[in-house]
Design a protein around this nucleic acid. Structure first.
Lengths: 178, 178
DNA sequence: ACGTACATGTAATAGGTTACATGATTCA
DNA sequence: TGAATCATGTAACCTATTACATGTACGT
């Protein structure tokens, strides 16, 4: 399971509570790995019993107590081990593709509308990535060594969104001509 | 669940046994929706009891009997309904991205090797798609109306592979410089 | 008075993977 | 004799989603 490893990476960068992690999975990490808070709490609990992370209860005033999780040596070892295991090609599942194949058996206008919506989603995400890039890495030739990974992931995200957007345009143009 | 719909699309195109479907999910449909034969048999059985498909046992000589599944009217209605429901953005999960973020905590050489492997996979798949395109759609301006969906999906596949490949090149170049 | 942020979880269900199981035919 | 193709499934397990559940503090 790679959610485990995504959490380890996140905790290696900075210790956090389950709640904090859930927010990270809504933003930065969420750009390439989605997870809900329910799932995070569950996996975190198992990782705790497995010794990959250690929890420390922090009392706060005016706010509920929180459990701050810290990556352990075993966790760091697991992360290193993970980096050494081969990654198999991602099993892709494109519902949009299923719908395109369903064109002869479905509602063409509705499918076109779905593509328009998808196009807007790609455009929005691309704009967001470009803004992040400008903000955090104003000079692409001066990205700090320990942030190259994050930078490359951001670059990948931009590429993927741009490609998705262009694909939508091709679909709309092709279907519009007929 | 969209596996259900992928199966309906496939059966709408042509009736098939579970085994046939499993092979299609290894090739054509498998380019955008993965499923194993175990999963297909399970879902197919449920779809049968739900009345979306109907099975007919065909005896063969020299080969085991097979159950040929045919899409029913209810199945066609479900497919049309599916084409009308909005599709939410795909929840992406990129293990490669997790590994890139793990660069400061892992084995750099191993990660680079993973990227090289991934690059080769993209190249292979791209070549395969391009061959398919040349074979089945030699004239892109003369794609039959009922095959535009399939053609557009193929185009999307090519775009995605090319983008993945280019991303790998960027990663290798960036990491090679440091 | 209402919504949002903070904070952590359980329970039920759905979806998916891996391993196991069987048996005939065809081809090298 | 052994591997590949045809053909269909069960069982155990893991992963993920959706719904439910609770309670404080702060701002408007």
């Amino acid at each position: 399971m790679a959610l485990e490893h995504a959490i380890l990476v996140s905790l290696a960068e900075r210790s956090a509570s389950g709640y904090d992690l859930a927010r990270r999975f809504d933003a930065s990490i969420g750009n390439f790995w989605k997870a809900t808070h329910q799932q995070i709490y569950k996996v975190l609990a198992r990782m705790d019993t497995d010794g990959l992370v250690a929890a420390q209860v922090v009392e706060q005033d005016g706010r509920p107590d929180k459990k701050v999780y810290v990556i352990t040596d075993a966790g760091r070892a697991e992360l290193e081990e993970f980096s050494r295991t081969p990654t198999r090609p991602e099993a892709l599942r494109s519902e949009l593709a299923v719908k395109l194949r369903a064109l002869p058996f479905g509602d063409r206008d509705a499918i076109v509308e779905t593509v328009r919506t998808r196009r807007a989603e790609h455009a929005e995400k691309l704009a967001y990535y470009e803004l992040s890039a400008k903000r955090y890495y104003p000079d692409p030739d001066a990205v700090p060594d320990d942030e190259v990974g994050a930078w490359l992931v951001l670059r990948g995200g931009m590429r993927a969104e741009r490609t998705g957007l262009e694909w939508c345009d091709e679909i709309l143009q092709t279907l519009g001509e007929r």
